[in-house]
Design a protein around this nucleic acid. Sequence first.
DNA 1: GCCGTTTTCGGCCCGACTGTTTTCAGTCG
Length: 569
Amino acid sequence: MRNAEVAGVLYNISELLEIKGENTFKIRAYAKAARAIEGTTEDIEKIALEKRLKDIPGVGESIAMKIGEYLATGRLQYYEELKKQVPEELHELLQIPGVGPKTLQYLNKELGIKSVEELERAAKEHRLRRLVHFGETKEENILKAIERYRQRSTRIPLGIALPLVKEIVEALKKSGFIEKIEPAGSLRRRKETVGDIDILATSNDAHAAIEAFVHLPVVKDVIGKGSTKATIVTREAIQVDLRIMESKSFGTSLQYFTGSKEHNIKLRDLARQKGFKLSEYDLEEISTGRKVYCESDDGVYRKLGLLPIPPEIREDAGEIEAAISGKLPQLVEYKDIKGDFHVHTDWSEGSNTLVEMATAAQKLGYEYIAVTDHSKALGVAHGLSEERMLAQIEEIHKLNDTLSDFHVFTGVEVDIKADASLDFPDSILKQCDVVVAALHTGQKQARREITGRLITAMENENVDIIAHPTGRIIGEREAYDVDIDAMLDAAAGTGTVLEINAYPNRLDLSDVNSRKAKSRGVKIAIGTDAHNTGHLGLMEFGVDVARRGWLEKEDVMNTRSAKEVRFKD
DNA sequence: GCCGTTTTCGGCCCGACTGTTTTCAGTCG
């Protein structure tokens, strides 16, 4: 599939046009087409071949021609010429807050500025303040913005942001000045990483609520404080905004501040088509000026004649169309989860015993876990020898005899070695209920080798699940070079289940890849990769990814009861 | 550049903020 590749070209064109200062709507048209293609599960080459490109919403005569040219020749004349016209370095300047395309063009024309360094020098030499439409303040602000840009914090993993927000929300509730409170933004959409955190609330005393917020123990700095909004920075250098809204506007506000931006643009467009103007304050009927207020953000969707769209899929990736046609997925929920398929014990690198892990899982209301300690090749993790593996199986059988209403599946996280062979012979694997295979070594190998190793593993009838299928670690390590489409096809062909590893710095498969897997009929198992009893609680993060990937109950193995759990026959 | 139960031309999401302006353009979220 070359969908991502084609979308990438269109995104680049959109950005180049932006730097050139072209018509905003033309810029948006390219970005819109790119998004539509990115979100299409059908192969773009197939669509092009069947001359159906213009059926894609946002793709018209001109863009269809360009896609055709690019797919056929691997090049696009228009794109090449654009790249020649726009110096590469200019791009970075758009990252400076306050510098947009117009300013960029102007500075380039007047002062020949092409890079952040040149802009900084011009500001320090006070050459900016002499320009028309510029002044002392703007010049100083640009210097500050460059400073901020250089120290910009990377996005925060959801695993860190979520507990922090819970702490803040609880503390604010205790203050007594808060009525309704809800975190919004990418955190509410459960994106794997979040930028700044936005919290919305209603209050009987906005002033007191703001004061309570800026004096919370987590606060390190107060950046801004007004009558209805305050911005703080926490000890962990995370920026948090609190906005106090009027109660009657809470639904529209929550809808607006939850985003995504792209989702909001399309929703407002749809509202307009239906004769309404949607803002964060209200839904206004254009012909009469009558204002409609919504208690909840679900209410906003209902008033527009849509089914409520869960926050996790508000990305303008087909969810609005699905809501219109009544075909929204019934997303899997945490309460559907009956067990965990990736659990370690102190037999390998875990810190709790078999019994402790089983008891903790039972307390969570689960019916089962699969114990999947490492195999011997992973020396650093005290991988099990074949003898110890058999001994563990024996012990689990004994444990099961003592348990009621709970089952421990025997299992292993078997290493896929650099030569594509598995770390245990079939004779051992056969004795495990659940075989999870994973690639831990040789991650630098070429795409062909890596993909081949994974496919070979999946072709083994004893291998049930591929753990953390791309190997990425958020903020630390890129995914290994695997051909995702080939892997998904092999999973579909062999009936191998792919994991969503719920560990917050893995979340692998990702949301996008999970959705791709679903479109090919590949089943998913969520595994926490727990190394202690506390880690079992990470399941929620895996469910978040599944929901963002549009997965429904039947797509997820963990929703099956212990008796219904079946992998390859 | 796209698109059409108001339109094949004239729209295209909305509102706040900022700094530079005396009425608004650019940028942001």
